[in-house]
Computed example of a mutant assay.
Amino acid sequence: MTYSTPLEATFEGKADGTQAIIDIAQAAVAPQALEPGKVHVVALGRGQFQQIDLTGPQHTGVPARKSGTTVVRDVDSFLAYFDKHGDESTEVYADVESRTITAVLDAHTAAAARWGGHRLELRLRATSAWRAWIGADNALMSQGAFAEFIEDNLVDLVEPDSATMLELAQSFEATTSAEFQSSQRLDSGQRRFSYTEDVQAKAGAKGDIVIPATLTLALRPFEGCEAYRVTARFRYRLDRQKGALTLGFKIERPEDTLSAAFEDIRTLVDDGTPEEIAVLNGAPARI
């Protein structure tokens, strides 16, 4: 048998001489570095290839997209982050049940789907003053405990003013050992409690304490919001057998105050975002 070239003789006996030529040529190629940010196809020999994807952030050092939920506590922080990352297709949802406002910064456009994974949430947090008054709402306390509570929260009182309520608190503290015998509702709506002191220094001394029918408070339900006028009605229980008086208050419709505060915050967000972006009533789709 004769061969037209030496190369043909080299591959005598191989099932596929052409494939062998390709294998030798591939082996002779010098290794080359693969460029990050691209998808490469590498020949492994004998007709086999491998795809190598170097587009991920671990190769490029750049995240593929914005993602995650940022939580803020007030409207100013919400609008600052929104201005930096939002666009004309961003969607904003106000959830009255959870009292949160959420912006989906990469929401779907009218023409194309987007990831919807970059979000901003205004998660309102109750103030310490609101928690204190709500925590003691509708609970009867001893004279001493009630006096201490009033003294600790004088700054929230509007009517009666703090000076009047401080004097009342001090009266309750001074009569913790007295026996309260009767109560009388006055024409003004106030209530007068009559007591008798039975201590060695003031044996048989008698006196009265008058408490208002209601308290008017100025409370901020959420951090970063304005104060709202809140009405609380005095409550009491007089145990005539023991001469013991317990006191408390009942806040009128606190849920209405929370709803009003949330609606005002929603309005501030609506006014601070672009006109074409409406604040929707509800919650965004889960991801």
Rank of each mutant, 00 (worst) to 15 (best):
Thr2Lys: 00
Pro6Gln: 02
Glu8Ala: 11
Thr10Pro: 06
Thr10Glu: 03
Glu12Lys: 03
Gly13His: 00
Lys14Asn: 11
Asp16Phe: 05
Gln19Met: 10
Ile22Ser: 05
Ile22Asp: 06
Ala25Ile: 10
Ala25Cys: 01
Ala28Lys: 03
Val29Phe: 05
Leu34Glu: 02
Leu34His: 13
Glu35Asn: 11
Pro36Cys: 00
Gly37Pro: 09
Lys38Gly: 13
Lys38Arg: 11
Val42Thr: 09
Gly47Phe: 02
Gln51Glu: 15
His59Arg: 03
Ser67Gly: 06
Thr69Glu: 12
Val72Gly: 02
Val72Gln: 00
Ser77Met: 03
Leu79Tyr: 06
Phe82Tyr: 15
Phe82Ala: 03
Lys84Met: 12
His85Tyr: 15
Gly86Lys: 00
Gly86Asp: 01
Glu91Gln: 13
Val92Gly: 01
Glu97Phe: 07
Arg99Trp: 08
Arg99Phe: 04
Thr102Phe: 02
Ala103Leu: 02
Ala107Asp: 11
Ala110Lys: 06
Ala113Cys: 01
Arg114Trp: 12
Arg114Val: 15
Trp115Gly: 07
Gly116Asp: 10
Gly117Phe: 01
Gly117Glu: 08
Leu120Ser: 10
Arg123Phe: 07
Leu124Cys: 11
Ala126Lys: 14
Thr127Val: 08
Ser128Leu: 13
Ser128Phe: 14
Trp133Gln: 12
Trp133Tyr: 14
Gly135Glu: 12
Leu140Thr: 14
Met141His: 15
Ser142Ala: 06
Ser142Trp: 03
Glu148Phe: 12
Glu148Ala: 15
Phe149Asp: 11
Asp152Cys: 06
Leu157Asp: 13
Glu159Tyr: 08
Glu159Ala: 14
Asp161Gln: 02
Asp161Lys: 02
Leu166Lys: 12
Glu167Lys: 13
Leu168Lys: 08
Leu168Thr: 14
Phe172Ile: 02
Phe172Glu: 00
Glu173His: 08
Thr176Asp: 01
Ala178Leu: 04
Glu179Pro: 05
Glu179Phe: 06
Ser182Val: 05
Ser183Val: 05
Leu186Asn: 15
Arg192His: 02
Arg192Pro: 13
Glu197Leu: 01
Val199Arg: 12
Val199His: 05
Ala205Ile: 01
Asp208Tyr: 03
Ala213Tyr: 04
Thr214Ala: 09
Leu217Ile: 07
Ala218Leu: 00
Glu223Gly: 13
Arg229Ile: 07
Ala232Arg: 02
Arg235Met: 06
Tyr236Val: 07
Ala244Glu: 12
Ala244Gly: 00
Ala244Thr: 14
Leu245Glu: 03
Leu245Met: 01
Leu245Ala: 06
Leu245His: 04
Phe249Val: 09
Phe249Ala: 07
Glu255Gln: 10
Thr257Asn: 04
Leu258Lys: 02
Ala261Thr: 10
Glu263Val: 04
Thr267Lys: 00
Leu268Ser: 04
Thr273His: 04
Glu276Asp: 12
Ala285Val: 01
Arg286Thr: 14
